[in-house]
Amino acid sequence: MKGKGKVWIFLTPMVVLVVIFFAIPVVLTAILSFTNMDYTFRWDFIGLGNFKDIAIDFVIPKVLLNTLIYTFTTLALFNVGCALLISLLTTSMPDRWGSFFRTLWMLPRLTPSVVYGILWLWIFDPTEHGLVNFIRAQMGMPPQDWLHQAPMVMIIVANGFIGASMGMLIFTAAIKAIPTDYYRAALIDGASWWMITRKITLPLIKWQLLFVTAYQTLSLLTSFEYILIITNGGPTFRTEVWALYTYHMAFSNYRFGYGAALSVILVIIGIVFAWLYLKMFKFEDLMQKPKVEVD
């Protein structure tokens, strides 16, 4: 075999896997969203019935609000904000210390997710044996029931501490790839750390900022495993986010059709955000313009 035929021999195994584990489930989910399949696993088509139900589901406004608060607070404070801050600070100090602090922030990633989730349950334990309440006790303050006082804070902090490391890695690599001479020139020209960061570093890592923001938005929109472990959406829907609600509908209430419809909407929300980011960051401008020679 020659020419393009050969290409297919190498592509086929991967294509088969993608079709079986990605393409077919996507299509099935889309079809499923038009049925009212339940634990009997019958394909009863009900048209837009599920979507009409979602429109009048009294939990949905709360879930939507939770999702937006959870996603964008975690994103701004940790996955992008904290990640950027760690990268900027650790690349401004001697590399030995920089690496040390970055390794510290990587530790949550190396922890199994269930262990990590349980760790946070211990940290926020309502008795004096929990870390936060233990510290409060040392300062003479009474223990707090964090799960009821501030469940949203719990899941944002827990997700943020693990989520910051990915942005940190990407931003650090991007900053380190900026030629040293830019910084030397700026130092000689008398620029402050803040001016260098604002005028040189940030514009030069714009592409990475876009990528991490977009990627992490989508990943936060769809992730729910730590919330499941730490609060399970409670108390009374206070931390129920869209992805978790979908999971609960499909796998706790066995309303597979309804769950599929919820996840279709989530995908649409994700696409809308991805498109917004491309506009916001002026994606076309990030591409290299052709070089014009005029000599």
Binding site: D181, R184, A185, L187, I188, D189, K199, L204
Partner: peptide, 20 residues
Amino acid sequence: PPKYREIGMVFQNYALYPHM
């Protein structure tokens, strides 16, 4: 510090900021 030395410097690769 460099900024108080009243120097101007030209680098081998020019070190011009590409986004400005």
